[in-house]
Design a protein around this nucleic acid. Structure first.
Lengths: 230, 230
DNA sequence: CTCTTGACTTCTACACCGTAGAACTTACAC
DNA sequence: GTGTAAGTTCTACGGTGTAGAAGTCAAGAG
């Protein structure tokens, strides 16, 4: 159409259209094979047009990371702080599952989009509801964040799958004495369920937070807690 | 020297010498500015020589990641499972602190060098000493691993520093109602100590593991544990 | 209407990249 | 000597990000 070609010429392609194409291309190809020129080819435009809208490839990658983060909907805070923490973790995990190639970008560009503030607000609120002090809530909130991102990143990179025959033989080649625990855990590692592992670790974390809130930092670090609990 | 030039010509530079130069160059420049050609220039050799020894740039990066992992000495397992877990965490954190640019490579190339097996053996052994079942130890071991790597990675990327004036004004611009917890934690975030945050989270994790080992998975996830502990 | 302006696109060009393939050099076995 | 094999270097190709100039076109001013 003349109108479309005119429009195309006038203000070119929408910036959001470029970002969309770039995001999907990145998600499909991965970082190594991703390039500005390929994005431009997909939407039928000069590479410099893409660059003009984002300033540099680095800024484009940052925008891609932000775009991914914006696509996940964060849960609303409730009164159940344990459930809230799990919900935040689940949100990041589904993000990692949906776009595993894009996910690592969130670490490189310490993405602080709106979605990020929402999720951290939920985490902070949950930890305070659990009864932690401000200092503990701040530090443990960031630690929790690191854990969730680290777990999701590990899943995205394929590090948390049940081990296959290749790894089994590799582990079996280890010295049975020095690597006794590892070798005895091979059956458990073969039937590993990432979801169960995540749920377990969330339970562990929340139980630990509850203990910290109740007994304070000095007791929770030692074995005294167990004595108290007995 | 004639002898040296002959030796250089005969079997060229040692592979380890190339790897050393590559590692330090990568640690200094970061991935974006790192290139095979620069490595070759540093040691005065043709770029193709570097490539010949490692096959591809990807293999070279993998070797760099392995080299970094090998440089950290893992602690020996003791009877104190809590201390062992902390020691493993500390080892990875110091690795991240020493070579922050190299550290992210450990995630991309799910590095399974000898040091990796040693550390996971320590983790598995510790969790079993804590009294966990094989299934729990396997899942939580990997989760612990993800946490430690995620925390160290966050530190390496500079995400865990106390917030500065720029971030403070950014947080203060948030809606005071929806981001109440975040805004009230600003003072705590300004004086954040990564070491304390890590220690706290380790205490939380070990306390949670102890509770899981004592009460089982069904109770630890609810509030019953606190009731028991009271 | 013309002229200007300013945003957007495109063209051209450059330096750099990873690496395939051939050619050269050297050490050593016979 | 004559292989032979390993290691090095040269050359070349297609691809990359992007600087800078040039082109295109809608919209407003006179």
């Amino acid at each position: 159409m003349a109108a479309e070609s005119k429009s195309r010429a006038r203000r070119g392609v929408e910036k959001s259209e470029i970002l969309d194409a770039a995001f999907h291309l990145f998600a499909a190809l991965g970082e190594a094979a991703f390039s500005i020129r390929k994005v431009a080819a997909v939407i039928g435009v000069d590479p410099m047009t893409v660059l003009h809208h984002f300033g540099s490839k680095d800024e484009l990658l940052r925008a891609i990371a932000d775009h991914g983060l914006r696509s996940v909907e964060m849960p609303a805070a409730t009164q159940d702080w344990r459930g809230d923490l799990k919900a935040v973790g689940k949100a990041y995990r589904t993000l990692a599952h949906h776009h595993p190639r894009v996910f690592p970008l969130h670490f490189r560009y310490n993405a602080t989009g709106p979605a990020d503030h929402i999720s951290s607000e939920i985490v902070y609120r949950a930890l305070r509801n659990a009864g932690l002090s401000d200092e503990s809530a701040a530090g443990l909130g960031l630690a929790f964040y690191s854990f969730v991102l680290g777990f999701a990143l590990a899943e995205a990179e394929g590090l948390l799958r049940p081990i296959g025959p290749a790894q089994e033989t590799e582990l079996n080649a280890l010295d049975p004495e020095t690597y006794r625990a590892t070798r005895e855990l091979i059956p458990a590692l073969q039937t590993l369920d990432p979801n169960a592992a995540f749920d377990d670790s969330m339970d562990v974390f929340t139980a630990g937070v509850a203990a910290l809130a109740k007994f304070g930092p000095s007791t929770v670090s030692s074995a005294d807690c167990e004595a108290k609990c007995a």
